[in-house]
Design a binder for these strands. Structure first.
Ligand SMILES: [Mn+2]
Ligand SMILES: [Mn+2]
Ligand SMILES: [Zn+2]
Ligand SMILES: [Zn+2]
Lengths: 143, 143
DNA sequence: TTGCAATTTAGACTCATTCTAATTCCTAGG
DNA sequence: CCTAGGAATTAGAATGAGTCTAAATTGCAA
C-alpha cells in the first residue's frame, strides 16, 4: 500500500528535522509499517518490504527503521531479549503481549495515569520516558 | 557476605519447590545478589562471585541466575537490548534507569496503582505480569 | 555533465546468551 | 566405608540479532 500525500509529507518533514532525506526505500518501509500495525520484527518488515520493492536489503531495513526511531515517528518495542519490534503509533500507549500467539497489542494510556506513575518517583528522579508492558493471555472475543 | 540462616532456608525451600538443590555455587551467587542490590549484569555477578569463590565459571553464574528466576526469587530486568540485569527484590516495583550512570533503581509500586493499570485493559486481556520502566536523569541529592 | 555527499548494500564482525559434552559432586543404597 | 547414578558444574563451541565496514549506487546542485 502506498503512502497518502499526507503521510508522505509527515515522513519527509520528520526526516528533514534530523537532516535525513526521504528515499524510495524509506517511503516503502514506512508504508509497510503503516499497513499492518502488528509490531513486526526487522525480519518481518524485510519480508513484507520485499514484495513491492525487490532487492531491498536487510541492512537497509535496519537503517530505515533506525532513521524512523531517530526522527521520532516510530517506537521500538522490546520484550525480554527477543528481536526488537517496531510501532508507528505515536499516541502514548502501553503494550500487551499475548503469550499464546506472540502478538503485541497497543493499550491506550490516558495522561492522568501517566501522571500517577510519575508521582511515584521521589523528587530527584526526572523521567524522560516511561515504558509499560503487559504480558498474559488474550481471550478470543469481540472485534 | 554469607547468607543468614533465614536467607539460606528461603533459598533452599524455593529451589526445592521446582526440583532443584541448594549448592555451594547457588548459595554463593545468591549471597552476591543480596549483598549489593544494584541490578548487576551476569558479568558483574560473575566478577563479584569470583572473590569468595574462585574458579566459579561464567556458565555456572548463568545457570544459577536462571535457577533463581525459575523458582521466583529473582527477577530479570531488561533495558532495550543491553545485557540482562538481575534483581532479588520480591516486592512489586518498577525500575528507573539513570541515563548518566546506567544505574537502575527500584521504585515501589503500590497495589492501587497496579490495579489502575490493569483496568486500562479491555476485558479480553488477562495480564500475568506488568513491567514498568522509567528512563531519565537522577539529580544528586538526599541519601 | 560532473562532482559530491548521502544512501544502499553485501558480507564480516560482535557479543550476550545458549548449547554440548565431558567432568565433578553428592548422596542413597549396599 | 564403597559405589552407582543423577544432578550440577565447567570449558568451549555455536547461535543469532544487531552493528560495522567498505565498496557501489543514487540523487542533486553547481
Ligand atoms: Mn522487558
Ligand atoms: Mn524495554
Ligand atoms: Zn505500539
Ligand atoms: Zn529491582
Amino acid at each position: 500500500m502506498a503512502l497518502s500525500a499526507h503521510q508522505r509529507e509527515h515522513l519527509k518533514e520528520s526526516l528533514h528535522r534530523v537532516g535525513l532525506k526521504p528515499t524510495r526505500q524509506r517511503e516503502h518501509v514506512f508504508s509497510v509499517l503503516l499497513t499492518k500495525r502488528d509490531h513486526p520484527t526487522v525480519e518481518e518488515v524485510w519480508q513484507r518490504s520485499r514484495t513491492g520493492f525487490d532487492g531491498i536489503s536487510l541492512a537497509t531495513v535496519y537503517n530505515c527503521l533506525e532513521s524512523f526511531v531517530r526522527c521520532g515517528i516510530v517506537r521500538q518495542v522490546n520484550y525480554e531479549r527477543e528481536p526488537t519490534r517496531y510501532c508507528p503509533n505515536l499516541a502514548p500507549h502501553a503494550h500487551f503481549k499475548d503469550a499464546a500467539t506472540g502478538r503485541v497489542y497497543d493499550i491506550d494510556l490516558p495522561e492522568p495515569v501517566l501522571e500517577t506513575l510519575r508521582r511515584l518517583l521521589p523528587r530527584e528522579f526526572e523521567p524522560e520516558a516511561i515504558e509499560i508492558s503487559f504480558h498474559g493471555k488474550k481471550a478470543r472475543a469481540s472485534r
